[in-house]
Computed example of a mutant assay.
Amino acid sequence: MPIPEDVTGEEIDKDVRQELQSLPKTLAEDVARNLVMVARLIDEDPEGAYGYSKVALRLASRVAAVREAAGFAAYANQKYSEALAEFRAARRMTGSVELWPLMADCERGLGRPEKALDMAGAPEVHKLDKAGQVEMRLVAAGARRDMGQLDAAIVTLQSPELASNSVQPWTARLRYAYADALLAAERRGEAREWFAKAVEADKDGSTDASDRLAELDGVEFVDAFDENEDEGGNEPEGDGAEQASAGPDEGDEK
């Protein structure tokens, strides 16, 4: 697959670069450039990232970082069986438990929420850092919801991390998951409160909490340009391309 000339391979993390030192220099450079492309594309073009990950895997399947990248690319494309196999391989090579929550989420993706819950109670979880433990809690709550256990999912998410006022990298996603579970349980007023808290923590827009909050508040965004108007019709009223109409949501709890 073609790689832009500006991609040198030097962009990769220094730990990954060190792993690649076990390879011949030219091969290491080729693998590094493919890994850079995986990282560049995985959010915007997961299929493209998957393609580059397969090239890297063909070149250096015995490098843990390559197996991990292949797992992430497969996961982004919802190829959960393949992702799980790659994550397991990376874990065998490194002995690290870092990928444990992702492995459990792959079990969910494969329709095995019970297995994900088993993993949530495994000793490996205690070896995870705080971010990993929060991620495992999110996976476990998702597994509970997969099994129709909404109340259990809500309880699973209740934790010191959820109650804390400090904002950490995981805070927005944790609050969002809690709000979503509350809404699914028809606890609408509480859900609105937690979607609002998720918005406060979501500085980079990693969730759609603001949209969910607006929906609960009865705010609807509409295109100011009427598609039915004749071409060259009158200018739309107002000074923006979008207008918002708001009204009370009769179903909202007081």
Rank of each mutant, 00 (worst) to 15 (best):
S245M: 14
E44N: 14
V31D: 04
W170M: 13
P113M: 03
E135H: 15
R33M: 04
G251Q: 12
E231R: 10
G148M: 13
A143S: 00
G189N: 08
R40F: 12
T171Y: 08
E231W: 13
Q149C: 06
I42Y: 03
A246S: 08
T171S: 15
A172Y: 13
L150N: 15
L138T: 07
G71H: 10
G251A: 02
F221Y: 14
M136Q: 12
V36D: 01
R145P: 06
V31Y: 14
G51L: 10
E161Y: 05
S53T: 07
M136T: 00
Y75K: 11
K197R: 02
V63A: 15
A140P: 03
D202F: 11
Q21H: 08
D151T: 03
N228M: 11
E124L: 10
T156R: 10
V38F: 14
V36S: 11
N34W: 03
D151L: 08
E190D: 04
R112S: 08
S206I: 12
V55P: 15
L35Q: 11
P4L: 07
L57K: 08
K79H: 08
G205K: 05
S96L: 11
R67A: 04
V219W: 12
E242I: 02
E19Q: 14
G109Y: 07
D180Q: 06
S206K: 15
Q149T: 09
A90M: 01
E235D: 09
S81G: 14
L117M: 11
P160A: 13
P2T: 09
E193Y: 03
R33T: 00
A65V: 00
E220W: 08
P113G: 06
L99Q: 01
L128Y: 11
A69M: 01
K25E: 15
M103V: 03
S22I: 13
F195T: 03
V222C: 13
G95P: 08
M103E: 01
E215Q: 02
A196G: 07
R112C: 00
D208K: 10
G247E: 09
D105P: 05
G205I: 03
